[in-house]
Nucleic acid binder design. Structure first.
Lengths: 208, 208
DNA sequence: GGAAGTTAATCAATCGTTTGATTAATTTTG
DNA sequence: CAAAATTAATCAAACGATTGATTAACTTCC
């Protein structure tokens, strides 16, 4: 008997992430998840205990993948500006390669009903923020960067990317544009990186 | 007999907006709305036809208040940069004075289940975007602004503000900070306006 | 044969909505 | 003017449908 060994557990996670992204956590029923993943409803509770268990698992999985990526940058013997540009490129890439999850995460940040999840996301983000904060602060202290409102600059960098993901129509008015299309995604990625690198270069290093 | 004539209809709208913001549309039940507003459950359908009717009414009310505000700016005989600074100040003020609604609107943008609502929000935003687009484009054409990726600059301005509203912990790490506290809100407002005006000034007008 | 995986059937709880009745205010009529 | 008719507002109760979760039986596999 050749059962197609597509891991049911993973299929549930994938389907749930897709649906949670599209219609929200409360807007998605366990029956939808079961149908979309091809698993029986009871499998959700069998593997994850509850609907929220699925959600928590997705978030934990993704957040774990967060931290492992940006360590090396800060050890390179390159200028603060180059470091920042590397971070921007990495950040844009990761977020635009995971737009569904990023939307989900951001939406969860704007709700109050799962405080533990809010804190978890906040902690995961603050890690990245501290990295950027350190890069910019170092640049200011060694005189290569202007004195700026560091946290606001970070909010600008992250906010720009998030805004592009959630409201791409702001950037591309073309109606048949689709972020899930690899070609369109590449275009947006390049534009976002170019813009943010240019912006930070001018704003942080222009003598005035 | 002087019954306290607090309009039940408005009470429902107020309660619903508060709850929709805190726990999302799907996460809020009509029973909660009824309880919070002090109205009977049936009044929701009596006045608005359905739960979604309440939601649509809230959005329409708010979006209507949107358009009426920014007309004058573009007629002033002031420079493109001054216009942009005025727009930034107005935008920051409006969004930080309506953080709850703005969160709700932004969350709705990231969902796919109510396309008409998505389009409605998109249209309301595009109006403002065209205004900013025009200001920057004019500045570029008359030579006072550098040639930049206009839509990306807009995404940066709007994204920064949205990011501050939804994730204020990024800007203020102080734990007992509260955006609903007028004093704290004023501080954030001023910082956001100062940052964005400084950023746009440097980025758009620095000769290079 | 027993642990792990899978299924259909079922559970109580909650969902948004509707109902029929009642009250209070307003308008019409004699 | 006052009785009658009409309207708007409000209520408790109930509706059918759906929710997340659980059960118990069945299958698969080592």
């Amino acid at each position: 008997m050749k059962t197609e060994k597509v891991d049911k557990k993973q299929a549930i996670l994938d389907a749930a992430e897709k649906l949670f992204c599209e219609t929200g956590y409360e807007g998605t029923s366990t029956r939808q998840i079961a149908k979309e993943s091809g698993a029986n409803m009871a499998m959700i509770n069998y593997y994850f205990g509850s609907k929220e268990g699925v959600f928590v698992e997705i978030m934990n999985e993704r957040i774990a993948g967060f931290a492992s990526q940006l360590k090396i940058i800060n050890e390179d013997k390159i200028s603060a500006l180059e470091k920042l540009h590397k971070v921007i490129e990495g950040y844009v890439n990761r977020i635009l390669n995971n737009t569904a999850f990023h939307k989900m995460m951001h939406r969860e940040l704007s709700l109050t009903q799962r405080p533990e999840m809010y804190d978890k996301i906040k902690d995961a983000m603050s890690h990245n923020m501290q990295l950027i904060d350190r890069i910019i602060t170092d640049g200011i202290e060694d005189g290569t960067f202007n004195k700026v409102d560091v946290r606001m600059v970070i909010a600008t960098i992250m906010g720009t990317i998030t805004n592009i993901v959630i409201a791409p129509h702001k950037v591309i008015s073309c109606s048949n544009f689709d972020l899930s299309n690899p070609k369109d995604k590449k275009i947006i990625k390049d534009r976002a990186v170019a813009h943010l690198q240019d912006l930070t270069t001018v704003y942080l290093t222009t003598k005035r």
